[in-house]
């Protein structure tokens, strides 16, 4: 019941926006003066708001030559959105509205759960102990370095 009414409300909002556009005959890509006024008053972040401007993290490739320009922002005036700050929440699916979680997302959740389960392990690794008996040496490209082989021999 509630859900359908909120959906109706949303579609009403959308039709309100399109109606307005039709009234103004506003077809350009930019905001009309009225829309600009609304944006400026209600949504635009200004210095007086005491909030930092939001930016997305740009992560360079550690192992490659980086072509992307990574702009340095001053930390005092910007807030970089973090994708790792709330990692302890991420070993379970978060609620969805209209878009389902993807396979990629479920893989992420599973690995976060696996990390959570291994967090307190000391020394021996449960994953390694479980998986290593299944290793067939013909499946892997055996390296020349002796140190790599010692990995198998040690267990």
């Amino acid at each position: 019941e509630r859900r359908s009414s909120s959906l109706q409300h949303k579609s009403a909002l959308f039709s309100c926006v399109t109606d307005k556009k039709q009234i103004h005959g506003h077809e350009s890509w930019s905001l009309s003066p009225e829309e600009y006024e609304i944006w400026d008053r209600l949504y635009r972040i200004k210095e007086s708001d005491g909030v930092k401007e939001l930016i997305l993290p740009q992560v360079p490739f550690e192992t490659l030559e980086n072509l992307e320009e990574i702009s340095k922002h001053e930390e005092e005036t910007t807030h970089e959105l973090s994708l790792s700050e709330w990692r302890i929440w991420q070993n379970r699916p978060f609620p969805t509205s209209m878009v389902d979680h993807s396979d990629r997302c479920y893989h992420f959740i599973s690995v976060m759960e696996m990390i959570e389960l291994m967090r307190h392990e000391q020394g021996d690794c449960s994953y390694e102990l479980e998986i290593q008996p299944h290793l067939r040496i013909e499946d892997v490209h055996v390296q020349r370095k002796k140190s790599h082989l010692s990995m198998i021999n040690s267990t």
Binding site: M114, I115, G123, E128, I131, P133, V140, H141
Partner: peptide, 30 residues
């Protein structure tokens, strides 16, 4: 999974030697 785990172990060992850091077994498993 075992073949991937073995190969990941080898690659991590190369990185560990280059960067002079150590990976825990759990990190390699992840």
């Amino acid at each position: 999974k075992a073949a991937v785990h073995y190969t990941v172990g080898c690659l991590c060992q190369d990185v560990a030697e280059n960067k002079e850091v150590q990976f825990s077994k759990q990190t390699i498993a992840a």
